[in-house]
Design a protein around this nucleic acid. Sequence first.
DNA 1: TATGAATGAGGATTCATTCAT
DNA 2: TATGAATGAATCCTCATTCAT
Lengths: 214, 214, 214, 214
Amino acid sequence: MNPIIENLNDHKIMSLAPDKRDRILNAAMKEFARGYKNASTDNIVRESGISKGLLFHYFRTKKELFLFLHDYALQMVLAEFFNLINLKERDILERWRQIVLLKIDLVHKYPAIFAFVNAVYMKENDEAALEISRRKTAFNDDVYGRLFSDIDTSLFREDIEPQKTVDVIIFTMEGYAAREASPDKSLEDYEPEYERILNEVDQYIALLRRCLYK
Amino acid sequence: MNPIIENLNDHKIMSLAPDKRDRILNAAMKEFARGYKNASTDNIVRESGISKGLLFHYFRTKKELFLFLHDYALQMVLAEFFNLINLKERDILERWRQIVLLKIDLVHKYPAIFAFVNAVYMKENDEAALEISRRKTAFNDDVYGRLFSDIDTSLFREDIEPQKTVDVIIFTMEGYAAREASPDKSLEDYEPEYERILNEVDQYIALLRRCLYK
Amino acid sequence: MNPIIENLNDHKIMSLAPDKRDRILNAAMKEFARGYKNASTDNIVRESGISKGLLFHYFRTKKELFLFLHDYALQMVLAEFFNLINLKERDILERWRQIVLLKIDLVHKYPAIFAFVNAVYMKENDEAALEISRRKTAFNDDVYGRLFSDIDTSLFREDIEPQKTVDVIIFTMEGYAAREASPDKSLEDYEPEYERILNEVDQYIALLRRCLYK
Amino acid sequence: MNPIIENLNDHKIMSLAPDKRDRILNAAMKEFARGYKNASTDNIVRESGISKGLLFHYFRTKKELFLFLHDYALQMVLAEFFNLINLKERDILERWRQIVLLKIDLVHKYPAIFAFVNAVYMKENDEAALEISRRKTAFNDDVYGRLFSDIDTSLFREDIEPQKTVDVIIFTMEGYAAREASPDKSLEDYEPEYERILNEVDQYIALLRRCLYK
DNA sequence: TATGAATGAGGATTCATTCAT
DNA sequence: TATGAATGAATCCTCATTCAT
């Protein structure tokens, strides 16, 4: 269904008992959230309560673990994301509204995954870094392609190029999201801010609708 | 004059002969561009032709070197930036135009500094990471504060909140910049693209002016 | 019948189905040809298609497997060797001639065994090394004892001690064999060289006969 | 002077204080005498009383240490060997006599070196193993070439090819040496056996002289 | 018999930092 | 100031062996 992410279920680790597997993957994500180099396989095994040997039984190298985790994280988010988003809604601003709400929920549901994904900047001049970079770009292209496919551009003002209109809307979305997700803001505080964020988003939506729509 | 960045001239290293100092700082920046953890003090001393002992004579720890470099880089860019920007121009969109042009120039003039600044994501849960994060935020607040201070909001449509208008403009600026600065694009290719970028920026400016201005 | 090599048939592994047993033993020999330490039990089980547990069911330790294999290899060669050699021939030089021909044949017939035997230099200061060394010496003493037993020393010159004459002949044989078996010479090339080797051997035999015989 | 062995004095380790250097090299040789894989860098540093880091400061890898040691050992032996052997003596059997005596002395003087050289069988399918094998062959060719150059073949019987005569003599020498150097014989016992060995060697020499010389 | 997940001590290597000179 | 040898904890990874099933 999604050709970008290879079939994770083929991986050895998927034959492990789910609770043990989750213990390992969660511990690994948590550790990699500190950055690739800072992450220590020793910490991962300590945290997940397994032996050194077992970790390397399932993942031949630290890099393989990292790469698997990356794809796993993206797939987890992705599956639920597209499951819940209503792609029938063709107004991009309405769709954004949905996305924001959904994202807040997901960040709460899978905090470790988001922490990990945000941290994935494997600064290395080797193949793995390029591979991650390539996958991330492909992933983003795919997600954005789907998320903003079949947009009803007839709603937009006619005196500006529709693609540029979409760009401004997306830039605004992302800019706002980045500002809200700045590292000082601990994820735990999101919930009480739900109202505030929704309110602000609605203000941006109103602004953009007034200025960019017919 | 700039309270955010402590006085770099107080640092021991500033008493070194400028050419030797530059050799050290450039080597260090180049190395840290690979990421904090990947950077090796061995490489730095080898590249700059000094001894291990001397490096640690001037900077007590790797972290101190890194932090110094960070402030140093920001100050370098900053000084030149504000020197050249015309703060008399009160139209935010015109100011953006200036900034884009200037930034392209600076990236060419100081590629090592920009490579370093872009790479500064020291994902660590220790003091240095928080410190960097704090300084960066302060720096950005300061820069943006100055860069977009004294804006003529009377140019904006009156049916929307001026601060939100500024936000949309800045989000668009940054979104566009981020897209252009994606890691696949090598800095060397910028020059021939100067025209293309300027052209695109002008299109966004025209759009925003038409939609957000009176 | 042969007191040096303990009865291999008493070993647990001998109750396994012959084809499966051979798969295991061949895989193990091939692997140990890389050297004792370099040999990996993982590779052995992968190659022979059995499970880790089963290997250690039959051989309690890697060392036991190795020791068994050593004896097994020697016995394999030995049995066939003495089966084919004509111990009626009492002229040591003629006997050598037979041995050379036979050895070339056997190396072709059991390349894995010879590769393994040649590689058996388990340099370790533990029990197994001494044990191997002891068995090898005993084996050689036994083989040479039998191979050169009942030699007709009346053929030798009478002005020299017969044992010394035998020594010189054996040293020449072994020296020549070692030179021909140097590791650069791949076993595959033996066949076309059959003629050359036989020719050279005959020259040495002629020389020794002329000088050492009456 | 000897083109086979590259200049060892260029190596970093040669700038170390001789006593410390010898402590390291001796410890390493002793350890590698157990075989390449069995040798543990931990043991080497423990034995030589230096830190882990220092060993890898001088030798970037275990393999580099091993290769250096190999060349070093050969050079040590070589230099003294050719220094003491009288190449004026053109009778190969007399020369052998000298060599045997000299070798016994050297084995006593440098037991660690000989133990190491005898043990050097790095069974690995990588470049280093081939490199060692290549160097050893080149070394042997060189040594034998020099050791048995300018031999007076006019002393030999005329009814046999001189090269074959030389072969038989060398095979006998090596065969005898190998038998005496078998691993069960600890090096310490050599001294009291000096007489016995010399006596036996003289017997072989007498035999060969009677049979192979005019 | 047969499986293969699980163990954990041991191995080579790295690297920021110190210190005697 | 300046050097670079020296340190050793930390890192990733291996592998013979065990054990529950």
